[in-house]
Simulated assay, not measured.
Amino acid sequence: MLQKVVTHEEIIKRAHALGKLAESKLTEADANGGYDKEFRDALHETGIHRILRPKRYGGLGLSHRTMLEAVRTVSQYSVAGGWLTLFMPAHECWVAMLPPKGREEIFGSDEFVADILYPIGKVEYVEGGVRLSGRWQWGSGIEMCGWIGLGAMVDLPGELFGIEGGPQACLCTIKVSEGHIIRDWKAFGLNGSGSHSIEVKDVFVPWHRVCPLAAIKKNAVPIGGEFDPEEAVYHTPFGPAFAIGFATIALGGAQRLQRELRERLRNRQRIVLGMKEWESPVAQRNLGEVTTMVETAEALYERALQQIESWTSQGRTSASEEEQARVAAWRCNVGRIAAQVGFRTMELLGGAAAYRGDLVEVFARDLFMMSIHFGQAYDDHMMFYGRSQYGLSAHPLV
C-alpha cells in the first residue's frame, strides 16, 4: 500500500489543532507534572515524530524547517507542549544513527522515544551488549514514551561498530517499561513537560541499541550503513540541527506573549489614567520595546536556521567547532530574549497576569526554565563562542 503524502501545510494545520488542545490543558498539565494521554495520542496522530525519520522506516521525508515550524506553532499555545512536540522527532534523529537492527526494532514499534544524555549510568559488559543500572533525572515526556536512551560511559568495541573504539559517552536504549519511573518533576517551570526521573537495575542492552554520541556528533553517518544519504537527517550536522529546537520553542512562546500583551493593553482600563491603557504613550512605548525584542529573536533564529539549511543543501554531516559555537550563541540569545519577554510582559500587565495558571504567568516560568537548560546556558555558550574564535576547543555538546 502506498503511503499517503503529507505536506508541510498539512503538518502545520495539525500542529495548530494540537496546540489548541495543549492550551486547553495548560493549567492542568502544569499542576499535574505532565500532559495526559489525550495529548499524547493527539501528538502521535499528527505524525510529527515521523517528519525526519528515514522513509524506509515510515518517515515522512520532510525537512528540518517543517519540523521546527510545527514545534514553533505548538509553542505559541503552550511552551511545555512545544517542548514535547520537539523532543519526539528530535530523539528519532539519534535512533536513525543506530545499527540497522536497532533502527528496525525501535522505528518498527512507532512508539515515542525519550532520552537523558548525562553519562552517569553504570554498565557491566556481557555477551552481546551491556547490563545497565542507574538513576537519571529530567526525562522529558518519559510517561509518553515506549523507549528511552540513557547516558553512560561505554568502552565501545570499535571493530563491531566500524568506528574508533574505547570509552565514550553513549545512549543505551531500553524499553521504558524495563525501568521504574519516579514522578518527582515539580520545578519552577516547564512542569507540563513531565520530566520525571527513571531508575534502572541490571537491564540488558544489546549492542544494536547503543548509540555512540561522540561519533554521530562528529559525523552524522549511521552505524552499520544501510541508509539513504539523501535523507535530511543524514546530511545535516547532528548537534546544531538537534539543539536549534530549543530556540524554536522559545521564539514561539515569545511571539505569543507579544500578541497577548498587545491585546490585553487594548482591553485594559486604567482607572488611574482615566483611559484605555493602549491610549497611553507609556503603554505604546512598552509594546514597541517588547515587539522589538521579539523581532530581534526572530532575526537571530532565522539566521541560525538558514545556516543549518545551508549545511543540509551542501550535504555536510559535520561542522567546525567555531561554526557550531556561532549557531549555539545565536540560539542561546533567542532563549535569553524570550525569557526576558516573559517576565517583562508580566511586569507590564501587572497583578492580573501574575495569578497562578494565567497564560502569561505559565509562559514566563516556562521560558525562564528553558533559558537555564544546559543546552541554552547563555554565559557558557558565549564563552564557548569566544574560545572558538581563538582556536580553542569549545564545549563538546554545543
Rank of each mutant, 00 (worst) to 15 (best):
H64M: 13
G81D: 12
F107E: 06
F107G: 04
G121Q: 05
W136K: 04
I142V: 13
G121E: 07
C93V: 14
R103I: 11
G121M: 08
G82H: 05
Y77L: 05
A96L: 07
K101C: 00
V130C: 06
S78K: 08
L84I: 13
T66F: 10
R65M: 10
K101T: 10
K25L: 14
I48G: 06
I116W: 05
D110K: 10
P54Y: 12
I148D: 05
S63L: 12
A70R: 00
V123E: 10
P89G: 12
L98E: 03
L117D: 15
L84C: 07
H49G: 08
E111S: 03
G146F: 03
A31W: 02
G149E: 08
K55W: 00
V95S: 07
K101I: 04
V79F: 02
C145S: 13
C145A: 15
L43K: 01
T73I: 05
S140V: 08
V71M: 02
E28V: 09
S140W: 02
P89L: 11
S75I: 09
S24I: 07
H49D: 15
G121I: 04
L117V: 11
H49E: 15
P100H: 07
I106A: 05
T27Y: 11
D110M: 06
S78Q: 06
N32Y: 03
G141V: 04
A42H: 09
K122T: 15
D115W: 00
H44T: 01
S63N: 11
S63G: 14
P119E: 11
H64I: 14
A90I: 13
P119Y: 13
E124H: 11
N32I: 00
S78A: 13
R131F: 07
A70S: 13
L132A: 11
